[in-house]
Amino acid sequence: MSYHFTILGPLDNPLFTHEFGTSRSGGDGVSRFTTAERALNPFILHSALDIVEEVQWGPSTSSGSAPMYLKHIDKYQNNFISCWITGGNVKFLLLTRPRDEALGLTSGGGQRGSLAGGRGALGGQGVYNPTSPATEEAVKNFFVDVYEGWVKTIMNPFYAVGNGDVVKSPVFRARVAQAAKKYL
């Protein structure tokens, strides 16, 4: 299971990018994208913005306040995209690429998935399901942690999101890595 996490500013400009693999179930936390997949990831994330905007501005599905966590919103081939949107129109996009076994592409293979799409989500058929409660919960926890770090980062008076500044803070990166290790 490989992940590609990107924070996009209001003008679709990337503010932060982090790539990691699962740390669950014996994963080593290293992503397993092939070169071709890695080159495509930004395109996939960028194209998901179409859907994000539609959900963001479209009629609200939940009554009352609009949710920040938009859950699984888009899919391109075997890449699943989850989104969290902040009050400042900054989007957190998480691209999940399950291993082939978890997609039922290859027969066999142990159930070594992570918690998100891992034991719970794999269910009986062993097929990754992005909308299963376990997956959604794990991704949500990850986003909540990242959001906490993000809020602290943008409180820094020398950092302005609006200018499209790239987040360089090593502390923030460490926090993202930590959250990833903890939940995904």
Binding site: H46, S47, A48, L49, D50, E53, E54, W57, G58
Partner: peptide
């Protein structure tokens, strides 16, 4: 809203 320009562009690149 609801246009799919980015997706169209991505598929064009592919």
């Amino acid at each position: 809203l609801g246009s799919r320009k980015r997706k169209a562009a991505m598929w064009s690149v592919m």
